[in-house]
Design a protein around this nucleic acid. Structure first.
Length: 779
DNA sequence: GATTATATGGTTTTT
DNA sequence: CCATATAATC
């Protein structure tokens, strides 16, 4: 027997060894499904299957990277003489990244360039906005965001623009919503993207499907390449993904899917657990293996999780059990505000670290929406606890990075109108809004790309000054393109930075924000350099280490991916992002009605059930300790909002809960807590006042509550010398890049024209947030 | 055409 | 609160 099997239980072993034919593994939370999947792949390779013939699909890059790493490890440690380096040849990644890679080779068949651009959500919305305005429709009626969701849903359900317009019910729906023209917009949007040589996220799936469906030789090619197909988190696949994998696996039928219907949380992306049910019917002899033993959590946590999820109707029958110890009760915590919640969590982390010697990395804070991260960031900083936020705005979505990338995108794909529009006048070179509009209109009329209009601007009667600017711009881009053929991606990028004076502009901005923007661009250049120095892979794909390849993979990255090793930090992320992960101690925060379950998801029972599954996913991330916290008030859009405790709190069985910190009353009953609590708390005091103090004294650097924000108004005069940002008072001198120097005349003000806002940063230091980037405080 | 002041309006969740 | 759209001004 292979030594890598020794750590598995009987079902897990069976799942690994059952190699041929369709297999569905129904696996509960913490049942070791990733372990099974990785071991299975290792087993395949160890038994002589060529890694080139294995395709493993995941939902995050991180999951893919982790899997690959583990496989290498297993192979290296195995007594088989297969080397871990064999794992490099695996096709393993997210649906999107794997298909993007394939499409890089196959795109020309579909009329796209090899170097097609991948539009992220921002790009898509921007294109939509342009399309909607071009159609002379009201942007308020057709909000790009809304329209995009609708189009995205259609694509994920394999509905083309034509089909969309022909469908009676869809049309009725849109008409009812007073948005009857979405179908037309869909069509125009798709055409525009195609003309730009660009695919959006959904197109990566859709075009992969079209490729397999319409080009038989392509289908045959990939059916034979991918003899073994494995899919993680199968409950989260949507119809396109389903159809693609079905096509790919049709010949060999060696397809193995792993899923847990209780963890299906991506229906907004078109995912449907129907795919799990359908799987059984699609192949002749499907084997099903259930993994029901949980190795992760304590009994208390598992019991609570099981009870909560029991409130959902129509779950597939499954009984999760564990041999682990009972463990602590789940702590339910009530605070009066989002900031207090943050404080409680940070303090609790500190306390547990001191008491039980947990490291930072043993903790995770999980929330429903990204916007909730702020309070925790602040409190963790104050406590001096290292943390890392996943999600939110990723590195590649920052403005300065997108600007730089837009140049590179345009050089690689001149059809990319979005990129062109972004940088044609950045840094400013006298090509204004009117000119850009004109360019766009001409491009449309002549049915050529916008850059072609720029190249031939003379033909189209621009005024001398503008013409000159356009010519210069075209020449510059051509120059970059020529260089691209002789130099590598990094050299080109550096040159672009220099030549466009983009870097210089950032460098000259000496504000804190400007400085970090400069550093970000530097960082981008570093990452490009790293990329160019990676070895080529040898699977005969198109130009796989060029700038084009770099740009394509970068769009599919989230900031969760460039994990600089398992640094010892507290992890902050949404519950969605936490799927598949586990932590010793977990805080599930913001357990309030309208936040979690989210107000947007209270329309139907299905939506509510998905929220409940989300809650289930959240609490099953915890191995040892679990807190569920909620705040009675919370800021939304800057104004205070009252919140009721989440209904999910009531669904948790009392006998596994410790409500000491919830005033004994997650439910609105009259229980005021134990005698001890009442003794030390009094009535109505906040819990931080009565929480058991650790032996450790409070660090002296802990600041008091930051004072309320003040605003200042600024009147420019003349003649001061600059220095550091420090204190700000009336009469404080200010420098503005264009206005020159001036003085702050009023400290609290009119609130209407705040030049600067005073805040306190993580170290309790006064910081001035300047509302105009080019002003700074001088001594 | 470029920059700054004012108004508006937006928060699920992700590739 | 924050980021972007529109209006106003140079």
């Amino acid at each position: 027997m292979q030594d890598y099997l020794s750590g598995l239980n009987e079902q897990q072993k069976e799942a690994v060894l059952h190699i041929k034919g369709p297999l569905m593994i129904v696996a509960g939370a913490g049942s070791g499904k990733t372990k099974v999947l990785t071991t299975r792949i290792a087993h395949l390779i160890a038994n002589g299957v060529d890694a080139f013939n294995i395709l493993a699909l995941t939902f995050t890059n991180k999951a893919a990277a982790e899997m690959k790493e583990r496989i290498e490890k297993i192979l290296n440690n195995s007594s088989n003489n297969t080397s871990g380096s064999e794992a490099r040849n695996l096709y393993i990644g997210t649906f999107h990244s794997v298909f993007a890679r394939i499409l890089r080779t196959e795109a020309p068949r579909l009329g796209y360039p090899n170097n097609f651009t991948i539009y992220d959500t921002d790009d898509s919305r921007s294109v939509l906005k342009a399309v909607i305005t071009d159609m002379e429709l009201d942007i308020k009626q057709y909000k790009p965001n809304f329209v995009h969701n609708r189009i995205s849903a259609a694509k994920n359900a394999l509905i083309s623009a034509d089909e969309y317009e022909d469908d009676y019910y869809l049309q009725q729906e849109d008409a009812k919503a007073k948005r009857p023209l979405i179908g037309k917009i869909y069509k125009a949007y798709a055409e525009r993207c195609f003309k730009n040589g660009a695919m959006d996220f959904d197109d990566l799936l859709l075009n992969m499907f079209i490729l397999l469906k319409n080009y038989n030789d392509a289908l045959v090619k990939y059916q034979h390449k991918f003899q073994y197909i494995l899919i993680d988190e199968y409950q989260d696949t949507n119809p396109v993904q389903y159809q693609i994998t079905k096509l790919l696996s049709a010949v060999h039928e060696n397809i193995c899917v792993v899923g847990d219907d209780a963890q299906s949380i991506y229906s907004f992306r078109g995912a449907t657990i129907e795919n799990i049910l359908q799987f059984k019917k699609d192949y002749d002899d499907v084997s099903i293996i259930k993994l029901e033993q949980n190795y992760r959590s304590t009994q208390s946590i598992l019991n609570v999780a099981n009870t909560v999820i029991g409130n959902n109707k129509g779950q597939l029958p499954k009984e999760l059990w564990t041999n682990n110890e009972a463990g602590d009760k789940i702590k339910v915590v009530k605070t009066i505000s989002d900031n207090e919640e943050g404080k409680f969590v940070a303090d609790s982390i500190k306390e547990h670290q001191l008491r039980y010697h947990y490291g930072n990395k043993d903790f995770a804070i999980l929330y429903r929406t990204n916007a909730q991260s702020r309070a925790f960031e602040e409190s963790l900083r104050k406590q001096g606890i290292a943390y890392r936020i996943y999600g939110g705005i990723s590195f590649y979505q920052r403005k300065e990075i997108k600007d730089m990338l837009a140049y590179l995108r345009l050089i690689v794909n001149m059809k990319d109108e979005e990129a062109l529009k972004r940088i044609i006048n950045y840094p400013v070179r006298g090509i204004g809004k009117t000119t850009i509009e004109k360019l766009s209109i001409i491009a449309h009329q002549e049915n050529i790309t916008m850059f072609q209009v720029v190249e031939n601007a003379a033909k189209y009667g621009f005024k001398a000054g503008t013409l000159d600017a356009l010519d210069k711009f075209a020449t510059m881009i051509h120059y970059f393109q020529n260089i691209l053929t002789e130099k590598n991606a990094y050299d080109v990028a550096v040159l672009v930075g220099k030549h466009t004076e983009l870097v210089k502009e950032l460098f000259n901005d000496k504000t804190t924000e400007g400085l970090s923007r400069y550093e970000n661009v530097q960082e981008l250049l570093n990452s490009i350099k790293e990329w160019t120095e990676l070895p080529d892979s040898e699977d005969g794909e198109v130009n796989n280490k060029g700038l084009g390849a770099y740009l394509q993979q970068i769009t599919l990255l989230t900031d969760a991916d460039d994990d600089k090793e398992d640094n010892d930090t507290v992890k902050l992320m949404t519950i969605h992002a936490a799927k598949g992960l586990e932590f010793a101690c977990v805080f599930v925060v913001g357990a309030e009605e309208e936040l979690f379950p989210n107000a947007m998801s209270l329309n139907t029972r299905e939506e509510l059930e998905e929220e409940r599954r989300l809650f289930y996913v959240a609490i099953t991330r915890a191995k040892h300790k679990l807190w569920v916290t909620y705040a009675t008030t919370r800021y939304k859009f800057g104004s205070l909002k009252q919140n009721e405790p989440s209904r999910f709190l009531h669904e948790m069985p009392d006998n596994f809960l410790d409500k000491t910190y919830a005033g004994g009353a997650a439910k609105n009953n009259s229980n005021l807590g134990s005698a001890y609590e009442r003794m030390y708390r009094g009535f109505g005091n906040q819990l931080r006042d009565h929480r058991p103090q650790t032996s450790e004294k409070k660090p002296s650097y802990l600041p008091a509550n930051p004072p309320a924000t003040k605003t200042v108004t600024h009147i420019p005069t003349a003649n001061f010398t600059p220095s550091d940002i420090s204190e700000i008072e009336e009469g404080q001198k200010i420098e503005h890049q264009r206005f020159g120097f001036g003085t702050i005349a009023k400290l609290e003000g009119s609130s209407h024209n705040p030049i600067a806002t005073i805040r306190f940063d993580q170290n309790g230091e006064k910081k001035i947030m300047l509302n105009y980037a080019k002003i700074r405080i001088v001594k």
